[in-house]
């Protein structure tokens, strides 16, 4: 599962999300309070400095999957502009999941960084 679909990408500055990271990003976003699908995608876009653009074709399946796994819960609420929207809220198990995802992600970043951070000349006398 990837955050971008396989069709031609209209945005040049888009970065493909790593496998499994979308779930983590959604859960992380919901840490700050319940949010609807559009809000989540906007939040990720803004917080990533316009780098990460979440495709709706990935976002909604991910939300519904997270809900089925009971990591998030949903309810219909009114937005600030008085529109009906489905809000997602992270659950206790979702928080646990986020913590473990976060930990694994940290390990991954360190591991990759350890490899990528090494300069080619550094090993030579």
């Amino acid at each position: 599962m990837s955050a971008t679909r396989e069709k031609p990408n209209p945005y040049q500055n888009r970065v493909e999300l790593l496998q499994g990271t979308l779930d983590m990003l959604i859960l992380q976003t919901l840490q700050w309070g319940s949010q609807h699908g559009y809000g989540i995608s906007q939040a990720i876009r803004i917080r990533s400095g316009e780098v990460l653009q979440v495709e709706t074709g990935s976002l909604y399946p991910a939300l519904h999957r997270l809900e089925r796994q009971r990591w998030v819960r949903s309810e219909w609420k009114l937005t600030e502009s008085n529109q009906r929207a489905k809000y997602y809220r992270i659950t206790a198990t979702g928080k646990k999941q986020l913590a473990s995802d976060h930990g694994r992600w940290q390990q991954m970043v360190e591991a990759i960084g350890a490899i990528m951070g090494v300069e080619p000349e550094a090993g030579e006398p």
């Binding site: 609807h36 699908g37 559009y38 519904h64 529109q83």
Partner: peptide
């Protein structure tokens, strides 16, 4: 129909923005 409405709301908010 729930899903239909959810996506419709998404589109409306995006257009509104």
């Amino acid at each position: 129909s729930d899903l239909d409405e959810e996506i419709e709301a998404h589109l409306r908010m995006a257009v509104g923005d």
